[in-house]
Nucleic acid binder design. Structure first.
Lengths: 224, 224
DNA sequence: TTAAAATTAATAGTATTACTATTAATTAAA
DNA sequence: TTTAATTAATAGTAATACTATTAATTTTAA
């Protein structure tokens, strides 16, 4: 894993918060313990009241930062995509061959995060678990069009665009680069989930990193 | 589209309902108008009270059929997967070449349902929309393991197994048949959703059936 | 046929959720 | 050092997601 400089601040579209949680200790507590609590009990059972109880603040204080729990989820997923793009940038630095760049990108997009490293109050391992399980719920909603207009999903789209560009470098005639990349990202999340909960929907071999291998192979064949 | 005999009854695991909605008019109304209402306002905003208002019954009567709205969603998705397996069975009858069989299966799994045909009180077009937008919410929950033990996802797993078997007929050494099939099914749903709401995540050409073509190509290359 | 059983409907109620409004206390800025 | 701004705490509300009870209706069975 890449060790990022601690003073880097991941940018998140300000439309998802009322007050920047990075700007106060309470805000950081909301993010840190919000991640923990959502990972523990799931997004459906998660409430600001429970989070308030855990951090010793009334729920009304949390509402000063986030309009509702959906916006907090958008904050977390946006943060994650920014962080991923950051990691991608580092992972591709000084790698010149587009084949190598694509391979590294696919590994980054499909691997499980197992080390909590870079940012003090964000546990990336748990955030990765949340993204796997909860992120579809952040955009499979009736508000998606409005939120998309406000640019809330820009980070995700930008990451997909970056990797698509590598594909087009390798094969400028490939017709479906964005479809392929978004299929890989969402697919890998689902496979990670299926391995744990619905293993008949996947093909896991213990000790092998089947998911990353599957998508590496799939992508390299698809763009030929 | 295949015209199914009307007297066929799609089987759904009885664990998802308290009383079979097929057994009474009220039950059929719950399913019919439940599909309409969820498609209209989305699963989050959907409540039994609103459904009751629409069908002229108190919410308590709906609770006699389904424990809660999550179980109703499980009923609808289970019904959908049974129906898909039924359609698959017909679509593959008398087709002998495994390559043709696989192609027809991928078309069936990835195409948009545009005709409401087979079953009186189930609008398959709207149900397909619900499955696209809401079905991940039916298993990305904390209850998934228990519900999986009860066999609630058996229909989905069986469909994946059927198509995986065709892949293994073509290439017995292919390592990831289930991963490939579940990636195609979930991926096609996501792409259908992205086309409408987050088009930068996909590659749509008007008038072309890009999604089905993409997955047909992807699958045929992947298993070589 | 008619009484018992079963089903369904309707009413009323409760705990929790998802907020909002108001006031008090604390901190920062002029 | 007073004024302004931020934050916390209390209290409340409308809606949600149920449950319990009773009444009405339909079905079945003796």
């Amino acid at each position: 894993m890449i060790q990022l400089p601690v003073q880097i601040k991941i940018k998140v579209n300000p439309k998802v918060f009322l007050k920047d949680p990075e700007s106060s200790n309470l805000g950081k507590d909301i993010v840190e313990h919000g991640i923990e609590l959502i990972a523990e009990i799931g997004f459906e059972a998660f409430t600001f009241k429970k989070l308030g109880g855990r951090i010793g603040s009334p729920e009304s204080s949390i509402y000063r930062y986030f309009e509702n729990k959906h916006k907090l989820l958008l904050y977390l997923t946006s943060w994650y995509w920014s962080w991923m793009e950051y990691r991608l940038y580092f992972s591709l630095t000084n790698i010149n061959s587009p084949q190598n760049r694509l391979e590294r990108a696919v590994v980054l997009l499909t691997e499980l995060i197992e080390e909590d490293s870079s940012f003090s109050h964000v546990n990336e391992v748990k955030l990765n678990q949340i993204v796997i399980t909860e992120s579809p719920k952040s955009y499979l909603t009736k508000e998606v069009d409005q939120e998309n207009n406000e640019g809330i999903f820009a980070g995700y789209k930008q990451l997909v665009a970056r990797v698509s560009d590598i594909i087009l470098e390798i094969n400028p005639d490939y017709k479906y680069p964005h479809m392929l990349v978004s299929t890989v990202i969402e697919g890998a999340h689902f496979q990670r989930y299926f391995v744990k909960h619905l293993p008949r929907l996947t093909d896991v071999v213990k000790g092998e990193n089947s998911i990353t291998e599957f998508y590496l192979e799939m992508v390299s064949k698809a763009i030929k």
